[in-house]
Design a protein around this nucleic acid. Structure first.
Lengths: 239, 239
DNA sequence: CAGCTTGATTTTGTCGACAAACTGAATACA
DNA sequence: TGTATTCAGTTTGTCGACAAAATCAAGCTG
């Protein structure tokens, strides 16, 4: 009895070897992407190692990985901080995202298997459910999964990687964007998703690409409008 | 006298703080990309730290960064090895590279400044010189710089990053490819480059994109032919 | 009073050590 | 003979400590 309890406690305390850096990495990444850690926030290694209850080595490893993803910026011998949001480059971002999503959606329409389709539809339903409940974080999460499910169906490792990078990069902007609506997120996104799914199901490449393009442009346009209003509220665009 | 020598020696020995990991990172990356370190080669942290004359920490940092770039693969608690060359996915790679180069070349034709043009032409000349001398490494280096100069002119940070990633990923294949010719690399590459530069100079977007496409397809086709012959020679395609 | 220097404090980069996880060979057993 | 097990030897993941570099305040000089 006592022994069993002790052992359980031990497995809870003593993390498995190698999980330390991984945990810090995932947790920090999550916090950064959902804006719990704000752009330009300072990340102190000692403070973090204390917070996570481990030495600086795994924390350091996590920060290095995050810096390679562009989510934190490391000033040598000085400090590392959460990467500033480069909203000045939003137009460039949209261009790149449009390009990649158009081609992945087209390829998905061409190559999708039945299993791919099933996965995509499942993500779509998750999104609808999250929106119905009004859970912004879940909406963003399932929205990303929806689009990644599409690029998975495109069967191109390189495009898939690029797509994932772009979606991660845009995640923080998406949080700003969705929050701007409060609890009443427009249903245009769902409508777009429906059209894309239908085109992929029917394997209509041209239509799929076209809907993907419209989707990106629609979201981008709304966000740009939002940005215009946001800038008036004295938001620090760059640091 | 003796003191001066001693001091100089000291500055040579004692690297500047922060340069350690950077040096290992750059050197390993260079060796991996030019195939001095062969795919699936084992990278031992202790051995590397001994070779570079420093502790394991900076070596470890370098390996983490390389793993985030996909140049090494880390098997947790086991070992890390040079990333295997995924030649099975060469077709996917070509598709992605074609996409990115077409759009960056098009944008470059649209947005290039005089300075951009100058930089691009300078890289082109470097390439010609390297080919004339028959220096394969320099050819690859300047070829990459040539294409990066174009995507720099496209003024899109995201596309530029994706492009750089793809070119790095393809660098090792390019080494195989160029080496297959021995000292007599075909001049089709130069011709392609000439056409691209002309189109960019004339700001003819359609032509620029078209030439970029032809260039990628041409190199891809030749490489695929080479691969066919290579596979016959019992090369381990994947590991 | 402005600007530079000095010195104390903080934070990072590097080091050496240790324990956990894996490897592989030698041994025991069916 | 073939399979499982134990026990060494590596190699990695994590730790605590220290020195270099930056930060910042106080003091000095003109």
């Amino acid at each position: 009895m006592n022994l069993a309890v002790k052992e359980k406690k031990k497995t809870a305390e003593v993390r498995r070897r190698g999980s330390g850096a991984q945990r810090v990495y995932e947790e920090l990444k999550r916090d950064i992407l959902c804006l719990d850690l704000k752009p330009s926030d300072l990340l102190d290694e000692s403070a973090l190692s204390q917070k996570f209850g481990m030495s600086r080595s795994p924390v350091r490893e996590a920060l290095i990985r995050l810096s390679m993803e562009g989510l934190v910026v490391t000033l040598p011998n000085k400090s590392t901080l959460v990467a500033p949001l480069g909203l000045e480059e939003f137009q460039s971002y949209l261009d790149a995202l449009d390009l990649v999503q158009r081609v992945t959606t087209r390829l998905a329409a061409r190559l999708r298997t039945q299993a791919d389709l099933k996965a995509i539809i499942a993500r779509e339903k998750e999104y609808k459910k999250a929106r119905a409940v009004g859970n912004v974080s879940d909406m963003i999460e399932s929205n990303l999964k929806f689009h990644m499910a599409i690029s998975n169906a495109a069967r191109n490792k390189y495009l898939d990687f690029l797509h994932a990078r772009l979606l991660d990069d845009g995640r923080r902007m998406l949080h700003l964007y969705f929050r701007s609506f409060g609890d009443a997120v427009p249903e245009s996104t769902e409508h777009d998703h429906d059209l894309i799914v239908k085109a992929i199901r029917n394997q209509d490449e041209d239509l799929a690409e076209s809907h993907a393009h419209d989707h990106v442009m629609g979201v981008g346009k709304q966000f740009l409008g939002y940005l215009g209003a946001y800038q008036l509220t004295d938001f620090k665009l760059s640091v």
